[in-house]
């Protein structure tokens, strides 16, 4: 029995050292204010929602022990990803972050694995950094936003990145911006950008990968979607109907989109047992993995205990979610 968590965020120590000295870290600076203050970048405030965002690796390990998490697969807190930067600076940001994550995995190889940050604003540089991260640094893959400066991943310029990930055996973990996503075009009230915008972005990236033909072009691609893929599995019937009746939906795929959803992985952050059961029944138990969204979700007492306590899952299903699926996917 182990527990492996695919969804664990990092605000790197190299950022804190720089901004606490009053300097700018790849476009980010610290701004004191309500609560724990905020990091401001690209004209947007990223509130520091948890003191754990400043944790050192040692403090993080203590927190993992308290939550019963053996391994965290670390990825950057998505608002820091820096796709807006000039390519050279974006490349340097990615290297700094990836070097820090790699150092964590080297020092505590049984406790940490890593997902790289990539400068996707320059696809060639992103491919190079993914190769470096996987072959030189030993990371497991990379984390990508659900959108890149308004561009979606089905656009042809990104195909070399997916081909490279497939060839490297790298896992791509897709995660949206929690405060800055497409729901803001409709409303900025009640925190709906987070509570609705995040899962809608997750569903859209599922659709982009499927309808864009990426899973056909890269049959061995390993991709995991945060937050259970949002409501993609629940809304798949409507996507299937759209595929039946609209030629533009059939542009890249010869089979209905629902037949592709078992090709992706999904973390278990569905916020309800009924939704998780529905996800498992739609995509298969081999495709659902443990995610905690550390440190943003206040699990009581822990994400592991939540999964273990679910009435509608068998013991075998729980083991697959808690560790077996990720052990196999990541080769941990």
């Amino acid at each position: 029995m182990r527990t492996i968590d695919i969804h664990a965020h990092l605000m790197p120590q190299c950022l804190w050292k720089t901004v606490d000295a009053g300097q700018v870290w790849h476009g980010s600076r610290y701004e004191p204010g309500a609560g724990l203050g905020a990091v401001v970048r690209d004209g947007k405030r990223i509130p520091i929602q948890s003191p754990k965002l400043r944790f050192t690796p040692e403090e993080r390990l203590q927190d993992m022990d308290a939550q019963g998490v053996d391994v965290q697969v670390i990825s950057i807190h998505m608002p820091l990803v820096g796709y807006d930067l000039e390519p050279a600076e974006g490349r340097q940001l990615a290297r700094d972050v990836n070097d820090e994550i790699a150092a964590m995995t080297r020092q505590w190889p049984t406790r940490f694995a890593g997902l790289a940050t990539l400068p996707a604003q320059d696809v060639g540089a992103a491919v190079e950094e993914l190769e470096r991260a996987v072959t030189t640094l030993g990371l497991e893959g990379a984390e990508l936003d659900t959108v890149m400066q308004g561009h979606t991943w089905d656009e042809p310029q990104f195909l070399p990145l997916f081909k490279a990930a497939e060839a490297l055996g790298a896992v791509l973990f897709f995660h949206p911006q929690p405060q800055d996503n497409l729901v803001l075009a409709r409303t900025d009230k009640y925190g709906l950008a987070n509570s609705i915008g995040v899962p809608v972005e997750d569903a859209l990236v599922v659709a982009a990968l499927i309808f864009g033909g990426i899973l056909d072009a890269c049959p061995a691609l390993k991709a995991c979607i945060a937050h259970g893929g949002g409501p993609a599995c629940f809304g798949m019937g409507r996507m299937d109907r759209g595929w039946q009746v609209r030629s533009e939906a059939r542009l890249h795929i010869q089979k209905p989109p629902s037949t592709y959803q078992q090709r992706l992985y999904y973390d278990c952050i569905t916020n309800s047992e009924a939704a998780l059961r529905f996800l498992i029944d739609q995509v298969g138990i081999d495709r659902v993995v443990l995610g905690s969204d550390w440190p943003f979700v206040q699990w009581d007492p822990s994400p592991v205990a939540w999964v273990q306590g679910l009435q509608s899952l068998t013991a075998e299903e729980k083991s697959k979610i808690l560790w077996e699926n990720l052990e196999q996917l990541l080769g941990l």
Binding site: V200, L204, A207, G212, G242, E248
Partner: peptide, 8 residues
């Protein structure tokens, strides 16, 4: 694309 403005 892909009728997603409707289906999603």
């Amino acid at each position: 694309r892909y009728h997603l403005p409707n289906t999603i």
